[in-house]
């Protein structure tokens, strides 16, 4: 959206005195004054500092993870246990839990965020639009510990009933199966359905909805006006216009936003340690108590691990780091591509 002059930052110098009859071709010389150089150096320096910090995080995690990875080798990716001190540890179970939590969150968040974003850009009256955008931003700014407390003491007790209902009716789907569930028993304990991946997923979805929503909203609002009016002129209803113009146009935003949300959901810690009952093998039954995430693992075990155990935690952290970084890179690439398309179309 900003245009940049090519000659910006250069000064024009005349090479010949003005008095001569034939004016020589003007030559552009990059003569940077000392102040200019110092300023550029300062900005470049601080960019380097930032890069150094980022690199340091990555390098340090890697160096610290090497001892554990050397011992575990490939089994680090396949073992479902966490006993680093007898060299039985791996992230197969924990990473599965992490991804399940993130998937539950995203599956809940995508329809809500999509509807919310479309409502704000397409449906809402102009006078409340700004307020709604502010509310979405506020949703993103609410500290995760507040969501955590709410999920622990408000949500959990209420979701247990829903979980029980889903498990009763859809228990034949392996994902919703709950071991030990006995639908015919009226005094069946709710504990089976508490502390589960599902509950954490719901709480995390509240944190990722605003992220998804703002990315989607941004791309939706860039949908070209000409095409919108064209659709209306051809007799489309509002939903017809949205389906034929806004959604195809915002596809990049939807996918990119979803991935950004996924990246955020993978790293959530506080809700996980407040609610979930940690297990180290993969629990694929999302309604059943027990689950884990890499961040929860780190938060729970960092203080009671031996030196080698800490190294193993670093390795798990590194795996999470690599996963989120990959997803985020992909997401920004997708979003950036959709943005560049927007400019050419308009």
């Amino acid at each position: 959206m900003t245009t940049v002059t090519p000659g910006f930052g250069r000064t024009v110098a005349h090479t010949a005195p003005q008095g001569s009859d034939q004016r020589p071709r003007r030559q552009l010389v990059d003569t940077k004054a000392p102040a200019e150089k110092a300023f550029l150096g300062l900005t470049r320096g601080s960019a380097l500092v930032v890069l150094a910090v980022i690199a340091l995080v990555g390098i340090f995690l890697t160096i610290k993870a090497v001892p554990a990875l050397k011992v575990a080798k490939f089994s680090f990716l396949t073992t479902q246990a966490w006993q680093p001190d007898i060299h039985r540890f791996g992230i197969a179970g924990i990473m599965t839990g992490t991804i399940l939590i993130a998937l539950v969150a995203v599956v809940i968040a995508v329809p809500v965020a999509l509807g919310l974003a479309l409502y704000i850009t397409e449906v809402a009256p102009a006078r409340i639009k700004r307020t709604l955008v502010s509310l979405v931003d506020l949703m993103a700014a609410v500290p995760s510990v507040v969501y955590g407390l709410w999920a622990l003491l408000f949500l959990q007790g209420r979701v247990v009933g829903v979980s029980r209902w889903i498990a009763t009716w859809f228990g034949w789907i392996p994902l919703f199966h709950v071991n030990g569930a006995d639908p015919s028993n009226p005094v069946q304990s709710g504990t089976l359905y508490s502390a589960s991946t599902f509950i954490v997923g719901i709480a995390v979805s509240l944190m990722v909805i605003p992220i998804l929503c703002s990315v989607m909203r941004e791309t939706f609002s860039q949908a070209p006006l000409g095409e919108r009016e064209g659709a209306y002129a051809l007799g489309a209803t509002r939903w017809g216009m949205i389906r034929s113009v806004v959604l195809p146009f915002g596809k990049g935003g939807i996918i990119g936003g979803t991935m950004l949300g996924l990246g955020r959901a993978l790293g959530e810690t506080i809700v996980v340690i407040l609610i979930i009952s940690p297990v180290y093998n993969a629990n694929l039954h999302i309604l059943q108590s027990g689950g884990n995430s890499v961040s929860g693992l780190i938060a729970n075990l960092y203080s009671e691990s031996s030196a080698f155990g800490t190294s193993a935690l670093m390795a798990a952290g590194l795996a999470l780091f690599a996963l989120t970084l990959t997803i985020n890179f992909a997401a920004s690439a997708v979003v950036a591509r959709s943005r560049s398309g927007a400019e050419s179309d308009a």
């Binding site: 980022i54 985020n328 920004s332």
Partner: peptide, 26 residues
């Protein structure tokens, strides 16, 4: 600068526990 921007954008979604783990370990 473009590379730097991409890195920063990707890092802005770094799980915060990793920032804590880094400082704790280092």
């Amino acid at each position: 600068a473009t590379t730097f921007r991409t890195i920063v954008e990707a890092m802005s979604a770094l799980p915060s526990i990793l920032a804590g783990l880094f400082v704790y370990a280092a």
